[in-house]
């Protein structure tokens, strides 16, 4: 037992390096997801079917298939048709595309939560669709959906452990490497779990703080 503890402590810097990579991957994926999600969410609400239909298909397909399969398609599937993406970007893209679908739904609900009068007031002042979105609707919508986006960020932090299967050395993968050298699977997995928890707990605090910070007086 004492040995297991010692091994884990010794491997901590290595695990933390993995945790840092987990944070990196997740942050970039959330960023990608936010961009995709905002555009797809807006497209879903478009009166033009050529925009709304593909958006619906995107959301339904990505939410209706396992993330693990999506990761495999991007990292192992695409090379078969001549598209080679290195593992690290592959992981980020897979996670980003996936979270984009969930964020699209959140953004759509957020936009719909803003009273129609806001759009009309903006239009009556001569603002274009994009100006109205950029300056009036999205700033209000994002304040409303911040809690949901925070949850998505936290969920993605946990889901990012799936990219360990394509040998990206994030937190879980780092733990597995330590175990393969030391055979202390119980202690190390517990350590890994604790680090995930610290990450998600801290994130939820940051989200709550941000919520208060940007609330409309």
């Amino acid at each position: 037992m004492a040995y297991a503890f010692e091994v884990t402590i010794k491997s901590l810097p290595f695990l933390l390096e993995g945790a840092l990579r987990t944070l990196q991957i997740t942050s970039l994926a959330v960023l990608l997801g936010l961009i995709i999600g905002t555009l797809v969410g807006m497209a879903k609400l478009s009166k033009y079917k050529i925009l709304s239909y593909p958006a619906v298909v995107y959301v339904e397909f990505l939410r209706g298939t396992p993330l693990l399969v999506q990761i495999f398609i991007i990292y192992f599937g695409l090379p078969a048709i001549g598209i080679n993406i290195p593992r690290y970007p592959s992981g980020i893209i897979a996670l980003g595309i996936n979270s984009g679908a969930y964020i699209a739904e959140i953004v759509r609900a957020g936009i719909q939560s803003i009273p129609k009068g806001q759009t009309e007031a903006a239009k009556s002042l001569g603002m274009t669709y994009w100006q109205t979105m950029r300056h009036i609707i999205l700033p209000q919508a994002f304040r409303n959906i911040l809690p949901a986006l925070g949850n998505e960020f936290i969920a993605l932090t946990k889901d990012s452990s799936l990219v360990s299967v394509i040998a990206i050395r994030e937190l879980l993968r780092s733990g597995q490497i330590v175990i393969s050298r030391t055979y202390q699977s119980f202690a190390v997995y517990i350590a890994v779990a604790l680090i995930y928890f610290i990450l998600t707990f801290t994130l939820s605090r940051i989200v709550r703080w941000t919520e208060k910070k940007v609330a409309i007086p």
């Binding site: 009273p115 009068g117 806001q118 009309e120 007031a121 903006a122 009556s124 009036i136 700033p139 209000q140 304040r143 409309i216």
Partner: peptide, 12 residues
Amino acid sequence: GMVFQQFNLFPH
């Protein structure tokens, strides 16, 4: 210019 019953100021 248009003025609405519900004012429709931008609250943010």
